[in-house]
């Protein structure tokens, strides 16, 4: 597939007019006549009328009696165009999170499903709460009995957090760098650790190469942290989301990275 020729004229035709997109948005919800569309869109009669003619000429809508209907295939086009728009919004809304950060470990599929993170909030440290990001994820982890996490570095509190999850009967799957494997594992209470390993309550996937992503998946929420382009982890901001979609997104990313690690 030659991508370069594929932003075709149909995409351009729809994208170049906000009025046309607005009309399609309304018609995708319910068919209407010109006067109804003028009322719903609050666009002038002449603009609605001329754009309806253009949309009809390009076979995106059809007029039956005096009502306009969006064509089924245009409805699909519009849904995908709207999806693209939402991905652009998400990039812009969390600009400080993405800009100058390393996203190499986000899989292409996870980026294509970026809008699954649409209900996220950016948690940032402040001068009066410099541990806000760590404390946010710590709280999430301690409240969860099923945890999957990618810890790319050793935080002094990680072993105790893991210990606490296990002590409460929880399960944890971890992807961590080989270099911190012992430091994490042997700082967990010996009895709890041995018992958890025996019962398969803790699974650790050590990685030889550096990890460039921080990810926690708890029962109620997920959080994502990135490294800056200079190679240091950005401790000052994380993206947190509680939606089911974000949970699935994070699970898929975790499993993709796990698969890459194991193979």
């Amino acid at each position: 597939m030659n991508f370069q020729n594929e932003i075709n004229n149909d995409i351009k035709f729809l994208a170049q007019s906000e009025i046309r997109l607005k009309i399609l948005d309304e018609l995708a919800q319910t068919p209407d006549n010109i006067r109804g569309l003028v009322k719903r869109t609050e666009i002038t009669y002449s603009s609605v009328s001329s754009n309806l003619i253009k949309l009809e000429n390009h076979n995106h809508i059809q007029k039956i009696d005096d009502r306009y209907y969006i064509n089924p295939i245009t409805e699909i086009y519009y849904t995908t165009l709207r999806e693209f728009q939402k991905s652009v919004e998400l990039i812009n809304d969390f600009d400080t999170f993405w800009t100058k950060h390393n996203i190499d470990q986000l899989s292409v599929e996870s980026i294509k499903r970026l809008t699954d993170l649409k209900d996220s909030r950016l948690v940032e440290t402040t001068i009066i709460d410099i541990y806000k990001t760590h404390n946010t994820t710590k709280q999430q982890l301690l409240e969860s009995k099923r945890v999957k996490a990618i810890f790319p570095f050793l935080h002094p509190e990680h072993p105790k957090i893991i210990e606490s999850i296990l002590k409460n009967g929880g399960n944890i799957e971890l992807i961590i760098p080989q270099s911190i494997y012992k430091a994490i594992l042997f700082n967990i209470n010996t009895k709890i650790r041995k018992n958890a390993i025996k019962k398969g309550k803790i699974k650790i996937y050590p990685v030889r190469n550096d990890l460039e992503i921080y990810l926690t998946i708890c029962e109620e929420s997920m959080s994502l942290g990135l490294f800056k382009n200079d190679g240091s982890f950005d401790q000052n901001r994380i993206l947190v989301c509680d939606s089911e979609k974000s949970h699935e997104w994070a699970e898929d990313l975790f499993e993709t990275i796990k698969r890459d690690v194991i193979t």
């Binding site: 597939m1 932003i7 086009y77 995908t80 693209f84 652009v88 993405w98 996203i103 980026i111």
Partner: peptide
């Protein structure tokens, strides 16, 4: 591409692929 540019272009490719598939 910057990180933002990469995110944007990946989603633009998704849009192109979506229309291609349709």
């Amino acid at each position: 591409l910057t990180s933002n540019g990469y995110l944007l272009t990946t989603n633009m490719i998704k849009l192109i692929e979506n229309w291609y598939a349709i």
